[in-house]
Simulated scan of single mutants.
Amino acid sequence: MSNRLPADERRTQLVESALELAEGGGVGAVTVRAVAENAGVSLGVVHYCFDSKEALVVAMAETLIQQLADTMRTAFDIPHDEPAPQGVRGLRELLFKGLSAAWPSIEATAGRQLLTYEITTYSLRHRNAGALGGDVALQQYRIMDEQAHAFLSACAEQTGTTWTEPIESVARIALALIDGLTLRWLVDRESDSIVSELDDMAAIIAARAVGKP
C-alpha cells in the first residue's frame, strides 16, 4: 500500500524521512539508501522522486524554509482589534511580544534549527561550486526577510512610529540578532537568559524608530 502513494505525498514522506535522519546525524547522514530504509521503500522509489542527493537536500531545505516562515508568520501575527501601546516604548513592547511568541517554537525544534544552519552552510559551499542547491541559502533569507519586513511594518503602524532607517536594513539587523541568539542557545542551552536577551534585542531594534509627528 505504501508504494501506491501519489507522487506529491511520496515526496513529502521521503523529505520527512530525510529530515529525521539529518536531525540525528546531519546532512552527511542523508543517503538515498538510508532514506529508503527509514521510509520503508525501495531505492527505486527514492530515485524516482529525486534524481540525486543534492535534489533531496534542496527539497529538505525548502521544507525547512516553509516551516520557518509559517512559524514566524504565526508568532508575529499582531491582533488588529486590540489597542496597541503607542510610541517607541510601545513599539519595543510589541517587538518583545512577537519575539517572545516565536522563541518557544525555536526551543521545541532545536534539531531542525541546527539543521537549518547546516543546510545554509551546505548551500553556500555548493553555490561556490555552481552546483544544484547553491541558491537555497538566498531563498531561505529572502523568505525570512519578507516575514520580518511584514512584522516590523505592522509594529510601526500599530504604535504610531516610523523607522529612521530603511526597513530592509532594520529587518536584516533583526534577523542577524535572532540568528546569533539562536545559535548561541544551541551551544549553551541557557534558556534562563532568553527573556532578558529578547528584551535587549527589542530595545536595539526599537532604537531605530521615532514617533510620528
Rank of each mutant, 00 (worst) to 15 (best):
V30D: 06
V30N: 03
V30W: 03
V30R: 10
V32M: 11
R33S: 15
A34G: 10
A34R: 12
A36H: 10
A36G: 10
E37K: 15
E37M: 13
N38V: 08
A39P: 05
G40V: 13
G40D: 13
V41G: 09
S42N: 09
S42K: 05
L43T: 02
L43R: 11
V46E: 07
H47L: 12
Y48A: 13
Y48C: 01
C49S: 15
F50W: 02
F50L: 04
F50A: 07
D51H: 12
K53S: 03
K53H: 06
K53P: 05
A55H: 12
V57H: 01
V58K: 04
V58Q: 08
M60T: 01
M60G: 04
M60S: 05
T63N: 06
L64Y: 06
I65H: 05
I65K: 07
L68M: 10
L68R: 13
L68W: 05
L68D: 13
T71G: 12
T71S: 15
M72S: 02
R73K: 12
R73E: 13
T74E: 11
A75T: 02
D77H: 11
D77E: 12
I78F: 01
I78P: 00
P79E: 04
P79S: 06
H80L: 15
H80N: 10
H80I: 08
H80G: 05
D81C: 01
D81Y: 04
E82H: 03
P83K: 00
A84L: 00
A84Y: 00
A84E: 01
V88H: 08
R89T: 11
R89Y: 01
G90T: 00
G90S: 02
L91H: 00
L91Y: 01
R92P: 02
L94N: 03
L95I: 02
F96T: 06
F96P: 00
K97F: 01
G98T: 01
G98A: 04
L99Q: 09
A101C: 07
A101I: 00
A102E: 10
A102K: 10
W103H: 05
P104A: 13
S105I: 08
I106C: 02
I106P: 05
E107Y: 05
E107H: 07
A108I: 01
A108R: 14
T109L: 05
T109W: 03
A110P: 03
A110R: 15
A110M: 09
G111K: 06
G111I: 09
R112H: 10
R112Q: 14
R112E: 11
L115Y: 08
L115G: 04
I119G: 07
T121P: 01
T121Q: 14
